[in-house]
Amino acid sequence: MGDMSEGGTTKKFLYLNRKASYGTVYALESLEVVLIAAAFEQDVSLAFIDDGVYQIIKGQDTKGIGMKNFSPTFNALGDYDINKLYVEKESLDERGLTEDDLMPLVYEDEDDDWAEKPSIKIVNRAEMADLMQDQDVILSF
């Protein structure tokens, strides 16, 4: 169950996003947990499956529905050292989407002279299952 470091326990937290952004509040409130969690210095990953892949589609425009477009917040995750975002390939395929439809989310790698690197990794369903198996805590929204 996690490693001891710097006076506290570090666990592997996975935030599993399964729903689209605006039909229900789950996506927005999941992102709020992720941002708070960043202060706890845990090993954080995000996964996007099912309709959750729609959360990080680029070019979102919510003017017509009178709701706040919160997708730009995903750009800030890299600054919080949250740079492991896993997107399930089958979920993209089932919705006629490809990696090119997703926001180009990046982070600066401090171990590589702050080189800008992609945060998103496309994985297949079996790899997603392995990722989940590897976690201490999964928060599913």
């Binding site: 169950m1 996690g2 937290f13 709020e32 947990v33 708070i36 706890f40 845990q42 999964i138 928060l139």
Partner: peptide, 21 residues
């Protein structure tokens, strides 16, 4: 209380069990 209490619960528990859709 704040969302930090949820993260703390995840850290301190052997199992975090979610009930919902």
């Amino acid at each position: 209380s704040g969302l930090g209490q949820l993260i703390e619960t995840g850290i301190q528990s052997d199992r975090l069990v979610t009930f919902g859709d």
